[in-house]
């Protein structure tokens, strides 16, 4: 049963909470580390989950980050409550960002979030509408 879900970790991610940003990704990483996941895979998952978490913090009204563990893959899922990505193709382009100047001053909004997620995933699905965005990033083990 290679495709049965073994374990799901879920974290609430608050909009604009830069103090806590990265906390969920750290928790995911330490959970996976304790399972003995390879360090290169851990690094990719850390990058993907951090970018997905920061996308929720910077761009959404808040949401959840899930880490699903299967025997042969890890799936990072972010779900937020909107307002949605206006143009997903544009958002996938390196350097394109809709982040505000104040957020950029903190070093965010480089326009590398979704491109990084895509680069480090084996498979990526993005569904976005005004009621929310769902990102499903799969990393094969």
């Amino acid at each position: 049963m290679a495709d049965s879900l073994l374990k799901r970790y879920t974290y609430d991610v608050m909009a604009n909470d830069f103090m806590a940003a990265g906390k969920s990704s750290s928790a995911i990483k330490s959970n996976l580390k304790s399972l003995g996941i390879d360090s290169d895979i851990l690094r990719r998952i850390a990058i993907i989950s951090y970018e997905a978490e920061l996308n929720i913090v910077i761009h959404s009204f808040g949401g959840k980050l899930h880490c699903d563990i299967y025997e042969n893959k890890i799936v990072i899922i972010s779900e937020d409550a909107g307002p949605g990505i206006e143009d997903v193709d544009l958002a996938m382009k390196e350097g394109y960002s809709t982040a505000s100047d104040s957020v950029r001053e903190l070093g965010f909004g480089a326009g590398m979030g979704l491109p990084n997620i895509k680069k480090y995933s084996d498979h990526l699905e993005i569904n976005s509408s005004s009621t929310g965005t769902k990102i499903v990033a799969t990393i094969n083990l």
Binding site: F18, A21, I47, L54, L106, G107, F108, M112, N116, K119
Partner: peptide, 22 residues
């Protein structure tokens, strides 16, 4: 930060002017 995330590696020293908690 996103570029640092993609490029810096384990046991690297990171030189930056960013100072906030993230």
């Amino acid at each position: 930060l996103s570029i640092v995330m993609a490029k810096a590696k384990k046991n690297y020293a990171w030189i930056t002017i960013q100072t906030h908690i993230n």
